[in-house]
Nucleic acid binder design. Sequence first.
DNA 1: CGTTACACCTGAGGGC
DNA 2: TGCCCTCAGGTGTAAC
Length: 291
Amino acid sequence: MPELPEVEVTRRELSPHLLGRVIERARTTGPSYFFLTTPRTLSRRLRGRRVESLERRGKYLLLGLEGGARLLLHLGMTGQLFFDGASSVRLLSSTAAASLAPEVQARFTPDAHTHLTLEFEDDGPRLFFRDVRKFGKVEWLPAGESCARLDKLGVDALEATGANLHAAAKKRRAPIKSVLLDQRVLAGVGNIYADEALFLAGVRPDRAANRVSRARCDAIVEAAQCVMLRSIETGGSSISDYVRPGGEDGGYQDERHVYGREGEDCPTCGALIRKTSVGQRGTHYCPRCQR
DNA sequence: CGTTACACCTGAGGGC
DNA sequence: TGCCCTCAGGTGTAAC
């Protein structure tokens, strides 16, 4: 679910309610591959730590703790980070949501998918990390240590230039979309914004990367930054699971040009938007605007 | 090395 | 109603 914009909105909205607070205890579900550090160890390490910073690298969040250790978080496909009091049908099982009147948004209560809960010494709002599919990740990084997952990330997509994309693209004949999704090239671009960027830049997603010119790479990166910045402004894309930390939906799902719009008219030329598969990912494009 | 296929996990939605 | 299939915003790994 979450790509750079959703992670950045989460970071911005978490920060003011997290920084300076002291973790009293952490509650977890049992060991699973969601926990790169075992839940036992994680709970022991987190207890009594003050939160000093919250940074984003690509789609990762790094919670900086007193003493220099960091907590690495990734939201995977269905991860949700939010506070006590958040209210949204996206935070409920479908059976629970179905029993509600459509306009009612029930307040979240911890369930089997809530893998990490942070409680604070100030008794203020708890922080929940819920993730139905468990593709998300939590890892304890000791002071002064990085990790392979972070070290291999390329330049953050918001800081990138067309030169960054072109340097990788000219060496590869994989589809340009696959290169755009490669986190070692630009960190943060995911399936929604890759499709949106290629649409705005007028480039077919399956075009061989080494046949995309420097000028086109410039246009693609510029378009990617444009849609991502706009998505951040609107609070990100809430299509199935993503919620903001207060429980609100983002707004960018209403501004998509092609993603999830197969069979609809292209907003530019009116041709029918098509859906295909590129690199095993659902891919949406306009057959007339994109060459 | 680059590329592809698949695995990880759960749930929603469509077809029959 | 139930069953079976496909699909989903991500990423790591194995095999060619």
